[in-house]
């Protein structure tokens, strides 16, 4: 057997073990990047093979937490893909205005930058008062930082640029308090946000949303899991609700393409038929 075939078996067994022992299901994640992440943990722990992680997954809680963090890629930005927020203002905001009250779900919110960007946008459009925003992720550490809203100042220049490219109406600094090497999001932006633990691979419907954003999460899934999650979104969306995916994601390789119409090709915005 070739080494690569042995590795494949090791990965299958490790993923089964993680699911049976801890309930986390990575079996339908896209294999190539999953393998990179697993190998990263193998090397960090000074091991040589994936199968050596097996006893640790069984008995070592601290190890499992580290592994879980490796398997959750939380790289994010405020107003990432600024053009998306422009498109959101133009196409979705006018529709939201007509509702007395509406609900938005950020699935895979990571450390929260995307959610606060949305809260700022809605505030500038005078809609934040009418909104209820749910922000979920399966990474509890990321959810903790999201609730804090406290970020390193390193990327601030990028966030500011994104904000103005996104059609921001004042200045990003109106929305945070600058601290030593970090900045903290103002509390009024948090009032309408509920953070919750939710695993897209195993948990169920989140009801009656007017808009769902799930950006740069499903690229980590295989087509089977993508279709499962999209079906979940379909069933969680209100009549004619909107689904916003990452800039380089589309529904065309999945089983639900017929249930949606495309609103923006460039920014992957869809609407339930």
């Amino acid at each position: 057997m070739k080494p690569i075939e042995i590795e494949e078996i090791e990965i299958d067994l490790i993923l089964d073990a993680m699911f049976k022992r801890h309930g986390y299901d990575f079996r339908d994640y896209a294999r190539a990047s999953l393998k990179r992440r697993l190998m990263h943990r193998v090397i960090s722990e000074n091991l040589s093979h994936i199968s050596e992680m097996f006893p640790k997954i069984m008995r070592d809680e601290a190890f499992f937490k580290r592994l879980l963090l490796d398997l959750s890629i939380t790289v994010t930005e405020m107003f990432r893909d600024a053009g998306f927020y422009q498109a959101f203002r133009e196409t979705i905001v006018p529709k939201l205005r007509v509702f007395p009250f509406f609900k938005i779900w950020h699935a895979g919110c990571a450390t929260g930058e995307e959610v606060y960007s949305m809260a700022i946008l809605l505030h500038e459009e005078g809609l934040l008062k009418k909104a209820q925003i749910y922000a979920t992720d399966f990474n509890s550490r990321a959810l903790e930082s999201a609730k804090e809203g406290l970020y390193a100042a390193d990327n601030l220049a990028l966030h500011e640029k994104n904000y103005s490219d996104a059609g921001g109406k004042t200045a990003l600094k109106d929305y945070y308090r600058a601290m030593y090497q970090s900045f903290k999001i103002h509390d009024f932006l948090k009032e309408k946000i509920t953070f919750a633990d939710h695993n897209l691979a195993t948990d169920g419907v989140f009801g009656e949303m007017h808009v769902i954003l799930c950006r740069n999460v499903m690229i980590y899934f295989n087509q089977k899991l993508q279709t499962r999650v999209l079906t979940l979104f379909l069933n969680s969306l209100d009549h004619r609700g909107y689904l916003c995916l990452g800039k380089k994601e589309s529904l065309f390789t999945t089983g639900v393409v017929d249930a949606f119409e495309r609103v923006s090709r460039e920014y992957s915005i869809y609407r339930k038929k």
Binding site: E8, R31, A32, S33, I73, V75
Partner: peptide, 12 residues
């Protein structure tokens, strides 16, 4: 990917 498909990622 193993089935000769692409995947994208935004890892670091």
């Amino acid at each position: 990917e193993g089935d000769e498909q692409f995947s994208l990622s935004i890892d670091a």
